[in-house]
Amino acid sequence: MTEYKLVVVGAGGVGKSALTIQLIQNHFVDEYDPTIEDSYRKQVVIDGETCLLDILDTAGQEEYSAMRDQYMRTGEGFLCVFAINNTKSFEDIHHYREQIKRVKDSEDVPMVLVGNKCDLPSRTVDTKQAQDLARSYGIPFIETSAKTRQGVDDAFYTLVREIRKHKEKMSKDGKKKKKKSKTKCVIM
């Protein structure tokens, strides 16, 4: 069974824990209790493949930012979460993405942009803004509501699919490099 290491990042209060708990335990946590770091595991079937999701729910508070490099190193894919009623959390996505790329030393890291709290009427981040940002990053965008469960499975499952595509691409690139290195030079 394939294991996928997913990391949920975003500013404090955007609903990272609520999304994760909704996926794992099928219930909505409405009281806000700032996370330092929590880890969850769940076995699911995605596109006919049974897999184990190892999900790291991270601290959004700035005082825990020193811990970010460590979990970013171990993560295979990242859910970059903002709240649709919090423009600052949307603007912060850029910083999370840049930090992930720096730590992973790669421009090509599996990510999904997630606009959470889409059940709320007080939207300050337009869907088109988020779609445009995701398009500019070359990553999928999904709106979710941890409260109603809308888009929750889709967000995590899409990230797994992005990781699969990335692994497939990397193995193809690896095979191309191996083929090239088999060419021999004969000096007579």
Score class of each variant (00 low, 15 high):
residue 67 M to W: 07
residue 124 T to M: 10
residue 83 A to N: 15
residue 124 T to D: 13
residue 115 G to Y: 09
residue 90 F to L: 14
residue 120 L to A: 15
residue 103 V to M: 09
residue 120 L to G: 14
residue 106 S to W: 12
residue 76 E to A: 11
residue 83 A to G: 14
residue 123 R to K: 11
residue 118 C to K: 05
residue 121 P to G: 13
residue 122 S to L: 06
residue 69 D to V: 01
residue 73 R to K: 09
residue 111 M to P: 00
residue 66 A to P: 11
residue 126 D to S: 09
residue 77 G to F: 11
residue 101 K to H: 09
residue 124 T to E: 13
residue 120 L to K: 08
residue 122 S to K: 08
residue 115 G to F: 14
residue 117 K to R: 12
residue 116 N to Q: 15
residue 110 P to R: 02
residue 103 V to H: 08
residue 71 Y to L: 14
residue 105 D to V: 04
residue 126 D to N: 09
residue 93 I to G: 02
residue 96 Y to W: 12
residue 117 K to I: 15
residue 67 M to L: 06
residue 64 Y to D: 14
residue 95 H to R: 14
residue 103 V to P: 02
residue 84 I to A: 15
residue 97 R to M: 15
residue 76 E to C: 14
residue 79 L to C: 03
residue 84 I to F: 13
residue 105 D to E: 12
residue 71 Y to F: 12
residue 111 M to W: 05
residue 113 L to F: 12
residue 117 K to F: 15
residue 124 T to A: 12
residue 79 L to K: 00
residue 99 Q to I: 13
residue 112 V to D: 00
residue 111 M to R: 00
residue 103 V to Y: 13
residue 107 E to H: 07
residue 123 R to C: 14
residue 94 H to Q: 12
residue 69 D to N: 06
residue 106 S to C: 12
residue 101 K to L: 09
residue 97 R to Q: 07
residue 119 D to T: 05
residue 77 G to I: 12
residue 112 V to K: 00
residue 106 S to Y: 10
residue 70 Q to L: 05
residue 66 A to S: 10
residue 103 V to C: 10
residue 110 P to Y: 01
residue 121 P to V: 10
residue 123 R to A: 14
residue 77 G to E: 00
residue 91 E to V: 05
residue 122 S to D: 14
residue 108 D to N: 06
residue 65 S to I: 06
residue 105 D to T: 04
residue 105 D to N: 09
residue 95 H to M: 03
residue 68 R to A: 14
residue 73 R to C: 10
residue 66 A to G: 12
residue 111 M to K: 01
residue 106 S to A: 09
residue 73 R to P: 11
residue 64 Y to S: 14
residue 101 K to G: 06
residue 77 G to Y: 04
residue 68 R to W: 06
residue 106 S to D: 13
residue 73 R to F: 07
residue 111 M to N: 00
residue 114 V to H: 00
residue 116 N to F: 00
residue 125 V to R: 08
residue 126 D to C: 08
residue 125 V to G: 12
residue 75 G to V: 14
residue 98 E to N: 04
residue 100 I to E: 00
residue 92 D to G: 05
residue 124 T to H: 11
residue 117 K to E: 11
residue 90 F to I: 12
residue 121 P to S: 12
residue 116 N to Y: 00
residue 72 M to W: 08
residue 105 D to H: 07
residue 98 E to S: 04
residue 93 I to R: 00
residue 70 Q to N: 09
residue 112 V to N: 00
residue 70 Q to H: 10
